[in-house]
Write a protein that binds this DNA or RNA. Structure first.
Length: 321
DNA sequence: AATGCATACAACCGCACGATC
DNA sequence: TGATCGTGCGGTTGTATGCAT
């Protein structure tokens, strides 16, 4: 390790120290933080009598001195969760750390770079890729690299409409869950069994992790199976089904994201402060024509995906024991 | 015992972003 | 509107430590 004094300040100069923290510095910072709490870090450094920049104090506190840090080796459960979260979030260490209580982004980053990455590299290519699809060094999550990563309303609508074309409600629900499950593959799950004898019992046997992330299905006598995804208390994606004839009802997204999402063939109507849904027939539209357009996701939509991902991940991490 | 290498991890650096002036 | 400051994030570096030879 670095010599704690190797950048020590000259007595005449107000040069800030760098390098390792000495136990005395730790004690000063710890005492100050416990007495005064977090404030302006420049003030912390000055008032605690430390010859350190505020940035250094912040880092030391967050990564080492904070009382709620867990420290110690990562459990296998934490390790699994890190791998799965990384497959979705990429190198967004702070977001991963936010879902692992007592762990810091720096700690997770180091753990990833020193242990997990190597382990994945040493494992067979096939298993490595299935274990962590994003085990490249890229800092981009998969959806940003053009791959199919997170659950977006686009994904949900697609799978809902696919499933709604099934011949029976049971199959429709089963298909809906399976499609959702496929997209959710990298995420923590509790079970993966769909034993549905009819819609009612099928509903009761929906995989818990689906309901935990706010995914739900409904049955409407007139319109068949549809899907919804709850996003917070007021926001919901509602996906009317594909009609029996193969035509498509216009689907409506109700949430609090500003902006309107449209393309030539498809309209997402954004109704702020309402939960109403508009359903108008829009016949002769093939699904591929609707979602096959790679330019479908404009900038606004990408922000939307990001926002949904945050909500989903929040739900997942809170349910992951 | 000495040396070299690999690993783990603390800490720095540069950049981005928002708030304030 | 631009400058400055504070903060947060991800990438990278440097060094202590453990292990093999």
């Amino acid at each position: 390790m670095r010599n704690p004094d190797h950048n020590a300040n000259n007595s005449n100069k107000k040069k800030l120290r760098k390098g390792l923290w000495s136990p005395e510095e730790d004690e000063k910072l710890m005492n100050y933080m416990l007495m005064n709490g977090q404030g302006c870090w420049s003030d912390v450094a000055r008032n605690a009598g430390l010859q350190r920049c505020g940035k250094s104090c912040r880092l030391r506190w967050i990564n080492y001195l904070r009382p709620d840090l867990k420290r110690g080796a990562f459990s296998s459960q934490e390790e699994d969760l890190i791998i799965q979260l990384h497959s979705i979030l990429g190198n967004r260490w702070s977001q991963i750390a936010a879902r692992l209580p007592g762990r810091t982004d720096n700690e997770i980053k180091n753990f990833w770079n020193s242990t997990i990455k190597k382990r994945l590299r040493n494992s067979s290519p096939s298993s490595a890729s299935s274990f962590s699809p994003n085990n490249s060094d890229s800092s981009e999550p998969r959806e940003a690299m053009g791959g199919f990563t997170s659950i977006s309303d686009h994904d949900i609508m697609t799978m809902c409409m696919d499933s709604s074309s099934s011949s029976t409600p049971v199959q429709a629900v089963s298909s809906l869950c399976n499609r959702f499950d496929q997209q959710f593959d990298p995420l923590p799950r509790l079970e993966n069994v769909y034993d549905m004898t009819d819609f009612a019992t099928g509903y009761n046997h929906m995989p818990p992790y689906l309901t935990q992330v706010g995914f739900d299905v409904g049955f409407n006598g007139n319109h068949g199976i549809y899907g919804t995804v709850q996003m917070g208390e007021e926001d919901e994606i509602y996906v009317p089904p594909l009609l029996e004839s193969g035509s498509l009802e216009e689907h409506t997204v109700t949430n609090n994201i500003s902006g309107t999402h449209t393309n030539d063939n498809n309209k997402h109507k954004n109704n702020n402060n309402t939960n109403t849904t508009n359903t108008t027939n829009n016949n002769n539209i093939e699904e591929d024509n609707i979602f096959g357009n790679e330019n479908y996701w404009d900038t606004e939509n990408l922000r939307m995906v990001e926002w949904h991902l945050e909500d989903l991940m929040g739900n997942i991490s809170s349910s992951f024991s």
